[in-house]
Amino acid sequence: MVDDVNEQNPTDIAYVHSGYAPLSVRLIQFLAQPGWRAITDVLSQLPGPTVEEIQQIPVGLRKRRGSGSSIQSNMEDPKVTLVFFLGGCTLSEISALRFLSQQDDAAVEYIVATTKIINGGTFLQSLRERLKPPTL
């Protein structure tokens, strides 16, 4: 929770919920910062394995500068992080990730993959679905 959120000129991802930062995006924010391994004790509490893979971008696929003639150096290439939400995510989580990538000091671009986009309507609809009895 962040008490003093300025929604007109936000400085923290907590603006997406008027003071509450989604845990998933807060963890991703820590991942992008140097020294993120300091929270491994927290990550070990989450179920499932943690995978980190760093891949080099081939020269032909790197972004070109505005002139289109020179290739950026490795120092200027932003990192690209694939964020996969298994079970779905909300539009506000995607909005918070966009906010993180648009910060002045951000050197990370996020690609979001999810199994479903959840909003109020789809959440309530999932509660109304009838469960099928198990077949024996």
Rank of each mutant, 00 (worst) to 15 (best):
F84I: 12
F84E: 08
S101K: 01
V2Y: 07
F123G: 13
I117C: 06
V2H: 02
S70H: 14
T115N: 15
V51N: 15
F84V: 11
L43I: 11
L100Y: 04
V42F: 05
V59Q: 14
S92M: 10
L31G: 15
V59N: 14
Y110Q: 02
I118R: 10
D105R: 04
P10R: 06
A14Q: 06
I94C: 10
G19H: 00
L86I: 07
M1I: 06
I117H: 07
V25R: 01
D12W: 01
Q103T: 00
V80Q: 12
K79N: 04
I39R: 05
Q125V: 12
L136F: 04
G60V: 15
F99N: 01
Q8L: 15
S18W: 03
L61C: 07
E7P: 03
A14N: 06
G88E: 00
G68Y: 02
A38R: 08
T81H: 03
R62T: 05
L86H: 13
I111F: 02
G66D: 10
S44N: 10
G66M: 10
L23M: 08
L46A: 12
G60H: 13
R98N: 13
F123P: 06
L91H: 00
R62A: 10
G48K: 04
K132Q: 09
L131K: 04
R37D: 13
S69T: 03
W36S: 15
I71F: 06
R64A: 08
P78L: 06
M1G: 11
L27V: 05
K116Q: 07
E7I: 09
Q102L: 00
R64G: 04
S67D: 15
L61H: 09
T81K: 05
I71T: 05
T115E: 12
M75Q: 11
L61A: 09
W36F: 14
S92E: 11
D104H: 02
A106R: 01
V51D: 15
F85E: 03
Q8T: 11
R130A: 11
S44G: 07
S73Y: 04
N74E: 05
E52P: 05
N74A: 10
I54P: 02
Q125K: 14
P133M: 05
K79L: 05
L136C: 08
A107V: 12
E52R: 03
P22M: 06
K79S: 11
H17G: 01
N74Q: 14
V25L: 01
G66S: 10
D12K: 08
N74P: 03
R62N: 09
E7A: 05
K63E: 10
D12I: 05
M75Y: 10
G19K: 12
